[in-house]
Design a protein around this nucleic acid. Sequence first.
DNA 1: CTGTTAGCGCATTCAT
DNA 2: ATGAATGCGCTAACAG
Lengths: 349, 349
Amino acid sequence: MTAEATPLPVRATLEDVARTAGVSLATVDRVINRREGVRAKTVARVEAAVAKLGYRADIAAARLARGQSFRFAFVLPTGGNSFMTNLTEQVRHTAEWLAGQRGFIDIIHVDVFDPDVLAGALETLSPAYQGVAVIALDHPRVRAAIDELSARGVAVVTLVSDAPSSRRLHYVGIDNPAAGRTAATLMGRYLGGQEGTVAVIAGSLSLRDHAERQFGFSQILSSEYPNLRALPALEGRDDSERTRELTATLLARHGDLRGIYCCGAGNRGIADALEASGRAREVVWITHELTQHTRRFLVRGTCDAIINQDPGHEARSAARVLLAHCSGEPISPDQERIRIDIFLRDNLP
Amino acid sequence: MTAEATPLPVRATLEDVARTAGVSLATVDRVINRREGVRAKTVARVEAAVAKLGYRADIAAARLARGQSFRFAFVLPTGGNSFMTNLTEQVRHTAEWLAGQRGFIDIIHVDVFDPDVLAGALETLSPAYQGVAVIALDHPRVRAAIDELSARGVAVVTLVSDAPSSRRLHYVGIDNPAAGRTAATLMGRYLGGQEGTVAVIAGSLSLRDHAERQFGFSQILSSEYPNLRALPALEGRDDSERTRELTATLLARHGDLRGIYCCGAGNRGIADALEASGRAREVVWITHELTQHTRRFLVRGTCDAIINQDPGHEARSAARVLLAHCSGEPISPDQERIRIDIFLRDNLP
DNA sequence: CTGTTAGCGCATTCAT
DNA sequence: ATGAATGCGCTAACAG
């Protein structure tokens, strides 16, 4: 099979199309960008020329000529856990990249866990922003703030945590019930047919993502693994110390504790309690988000699997979706779908 | 926390820099692009201006002015299995995207499994290509062909299957030994402490990726799960019918068969044999690549886990790496690392 | 309805 | 060692 001798790599320009269609640049532009006021006959001539020459617009030139630039706000939590720190870092990288594409990102830190504060921040956002990405809360005031931004023509994407009934353009994040189900399947399979108790620790069940994970987890565990009994979810407030105490109590109280599913943060507390108890190897512990800490626990064997969402992918995806929307380009859903990653010690990146 | 009132979203241009540095456009350009022939003092002045204004080059404008375009060849297998079909499709999508960035991809189909044919195709490749992505074979003649292309200044990336000792620029694909280890851990954990036999079916052990997966798998299985005995790998030549026969024989011969790891293709044969035997539910089957077929087997419960590499990501990554190299831009390794995905029925995309 | 024209921000001759 | 001028391919006024 010989490689075909490749001909000229010349690319047709708008001028070429104009010439072969026998019209002017402006007319071609009108046809290409589907603007009004061109006779059907002319449209046809231009389209024929486009087809004949295989014309594709040079998007760099188009962007340059259009001269528009974009300004986006990313509303992220103040402080926050390792995952949020990673996410912030990735948003910074993305900002750097976007700056080359005439897009500017401001990172605005607020206490995203307080609905009033979050809503307030959204309400007072500078009108200079054409788009905002926000770690949302599914709360009436937040929804209202998002809807008002949308009504003002601002593109809003929710990031990591959704506000499904709002008028946000797009949600960038994982399917949390599915993530919970994934954890449950892994837990059920790892425990084989063993009988026993499984604990669920969330940060707060009023956080939609935590609640959804818990829901998905319990659903599969109870329907598919009747040998395992899931305890009611405990709330560790994403705080390591509090989570450590909860875990220690759990271990003391339930001699038949076979597994722990943590659908929030505070993982250092779980690791401490588990390792202190001497039962780290026999208890299957599954948690969320790959961080420097959870990675260590996984490698060490204390943790058995990590369900992850890639903050780099999420940051880039949010920026791409916002940019595409604001410049009227399509997005490829395939590329923007955030995966539910499963990490074992063997496939760590 | 109120959102800061955002000031002017104006972006500094080269002209701005030139003006505040009191020099001409050309001089700024020389400094920015680290060209020779500028007095140190002038360089300093320009750099100060750049820093002061926070200047970032507009990459759209730069690309346009440079006016260079790129032509890449993707060498893919003729025919091929579902995975390869998906990959080809994704390369087509990528080509469409690249066309907007002055990059052109030609897909060249060859029998990549024959080293001589593959090497021949590479050797006779039109010199019009600045880059080529190839599903490599780790064979002396192929290596030599890759090295010669590299010597001619052509950027070569290997795709999915590597030729590690060649002078390729970059490998776009997963870490196959790690993928095998991942499968082994899953297999070991799913089988709990059960004693028994585990079969390994490869397409061909002379394919480097298959061999590496098999290696990783056996390594972990024998060191961590002494209760399981891995049979010597069988070769199904990625052919469903042949693989079906192998599987049927395996099932008939080994009453204690607990698991099957397929590190190649031919999955439909495995599913058929497994389902015909009535032991589909008790035998743990782990395979590679998410396709329309393997997805069905996973949902149905015949297959227990799929180790996957994302062909869309791979196609885009290859194109990005080639483009970045040819236009002297850096790549972000983080984004180009191909993940070893694990899919259970719960986290299917 | 259609054509002319002037940039967009940068790279690149060619002068000086 | 530095500057002035030209054009990349396209969009958007503005004319006709």
